[in-house]
């Protein structure tokens, strides 16, 4: 019952098809993805449907998210980065919603699965690579040649640059995945303490106040982490896109 891993279990809700050896199904993860996409769309379109000159609270929130992502892109990738605005906005809002929904007990955290964060990170990586090659051609590889480096250590530097470029999707995805996973396991462990202790009568009940207080504090911390990791994911996306837009450092 108190298995801290159980919350990450993928549950097939509606089996759909067998392709090769693997089954395609509508899972709990899929349900939350659909809820995220639907919820975000409903929020952003519903809040702005009246196009108020003086915004209501909801419209203000929608505008705030727009301006927040826009200013993040302008700050890291310049005005030219705004062509990726819908992409970065979608990533940020998707990850933020997934992280935030995940804090609610009994929900499933989409971003606590490495395959999801890796897919997002690889998408960003491919967008950077393809856009960089498409818009700058071979000059895109100037990215790996920092200016002002003495020629005799250049091969080493280039090798390191290429390695760091290739490892970007790994750090990009693992950071988000690990943060979500660790936070949720910690919460679950403290929750298990409450149940364990409260099974031992009145003394246990009093003692269970401690892990409960811990959970309250961790919830606040997790809310911060949920936002921060979504922001970090988005800002790293912007920084990588900036490389595709301005490869010449």
């Amino acid at each position: 019952m108190a298995d801290p891993i159980h919350q990450f279990q993928i549950v097939n809700l509606i089996p759909i098809a067998h392709v090769g050896g693997s089954e395609i199904a509508f899972t709990n993860s899929a349900a939350f993805m659909v809820v995220i996409a639907g919820g975000l769309t409903a929020f952003l379109l519903g809040a702005t449907s009246k196009r108020r000159l003086v915004p209501s609270r909801l419209q203000s929130a929608a505008e705030l998210s727009y301006e927040f992502v826009a200013s993040t892109i302008r700050g890291t990738a310049g005005t030219e980065g705004m062509r990726f605005f819908p992409f970065v906005f979608t990533i940020f809002m998707f990850v933020l919603a997934a992280n935030m929904i995940g804090i609610i007990p009994y929900t499933f955290t989409v971003t606590s699965h490495i395959i999801v964060t890796a897919a997002l990170a690889i998408t960003v990586f491919l967008v950077v690579l393809i856009y960089g090659l498409w818009s700058h051609g071979f000059h895109f590889f100037n990215l790996f040649i920092p200016k002002g480096v003495p020629i005799y250590i250049l091969p080493l530097i280039v090798a390191i640059e290429i390695l760091s470029f290739m490892s970007r999707p790994i750090s990009h995805s693992v950071r988000l995945f690990a943060n979500m996973l660790a936070g949720h396991i910690t919460l679950q462990v403290f929750a298990a303490f409450i149940i364990l202790m409260s099974a031992h009568g009145i003394l246990g009940w009093t003692g269970a106040v401690l892990p409960f207080a811990m959970i309250v504090i961790l919830m606040a911390l997790e809310a911060l982490v949920a936002f921060l990791q979504a922001y970090v994911f988005a800002i790293l996306t912007c920084i990588y896109l900036n490389d595709a837009i301005h490869p010449g450092h």
Binding site: I24, A30, L44, T48, P86, M93
Partner: peptide, 30 residues
């Protein structure tokens, strides 16, 4: 496979809805 397929579907759907509907609307309001 299930996760990837549903992630692709929901992400692309969200991307299209954002880039075609929500963001132009908010942009025009601002």
């Amino acid at each position: 496979p299930s996760q990837l397929i549903w992630l692709a579907l929901s992400f692309i759907l969200l991307y299209v809805l954002m880039s075609k509907l929500a963001l132009p609307r908010i942009g025009s309001i601002l």
